[in-house]
Write a protein that binds this DNA or RNA. Structure first.
Lengths: 163, 163
DNA sequence: CTTTATCCCATGCGATCCCATGTCAGCCCG
DNA sequence: CGGGCTGACATGGGATCGCATGGGATAAAG
């Protein structure tokens, strides 16, 4: 497995530490782990984005696509690099979330880790639950569009959840 | 055989484990089994969808088509990756169903595995029986349409290999 | 010397592995 | 043609290991 998949919720202890789900850690190591986890506020959500080297390269890639001294590039650079923190993972697989990041995501007692393939997000559990519900209902719609185009075999009934 | 076919019903033991039907396991292995079974709540049914690498690639494929920082992608990612669980199959061909998934499908004492070709579903046996009855009646209609054009196979005795 | 961040160890629960049992079906041998 | 044998598979239980979590010790900073 080499992608961040599924969700986990872990507690923040009295010292502000949180365990990174073991499976995510495994992905990070495979991803050319360099002792650090790249983490920054999500651009459009009250959450944090995080990942390993692959994510860092992806950001580089995005910026590389924009002309050098454009406003867009400056803004994106600031938005992305500016707030990035490199969090060190301790011997027990835990990280400490700096105050600024905690504030952005309103993290308090627990953190929900959400796998998104190349990266993962960290949410305040209640907020994420809400977000998930929204995402699911929107996908229902998207799904129907896909289904209309790529209907393949079987039955005449709805029945199987084809995606 | 390289597709999931027919239905089987197995018990959930006291630890929440269920044996995957041997024939399904065989399909998974042939499918480029990477130590895990991808499983997520069916979007439109009280059941779980599951499959092997082929299914995972299908999901990746859907996401690959969307631009990196789009809303659509984020939502799909959350709905798909976020809900997906990678279930490991133990040495005896069993999996453990996490609480969240069990809840979605109302799984309790037993699970009905339903082959759907590329993937399979897991149902609470009673619910599936009901669903099957409905599907059957719809198929009757569809069958008539097919029959009108090209009479092919059998009689009305579908019957399906019951375990 | 006080305070804050990092490391290391202890613990408990849950997940995973391994082995034993029971059942059924197919096969070989009589 | 029939009966016992063997192997595959579902199922159950016990033992073990890993992981999340909490607390104290140690080192660095003010």
């Amino acid at each position: 497995m080499d992608r961040f998949v599924s969700t986990f919720t872990n507690k923040i202890d009295s010292k502000g530490r949180v365990s990174i789900p073991a499976s995510f850690r495994a992905v990070l190591e495979r991803d050319g782990y360099a002792g650090g986890l790249y983490c920054y506020p999500s651009l459009d959500a009250p959450a944090l984005d995080a990942g390993g080297e692959r994510l860092a390269k992806k950001i580089d890639g995005l910026l590389a696509g924009l002309p050098d001294y454009s406003d867009e590039r400056d803004e994106l650079s600031v938005a992305l690099y500016g707030d990035v923190q490199v969090l060190t993972i301790d011997g027990d697989g835990r990280i400490v979330l700096p105050e600024g990041l905690r504030a952005h995501a309103a993290l308090d007692a627990a953190v929900t880790f959400v796998g998104l393939g190349d990266k993962f997000q960290m949410w305040e559990p209640a907020r994420f639950e809400k977000r998930r519900a929204e995402a699911r209902s929107k996908v229902q719609v998207t799904r129907k569009l896909f289904a209309a185009g790529s209907r393949t075999s079987d039955d005449g009934g709805d029945e199987g959840a084809r995606e």
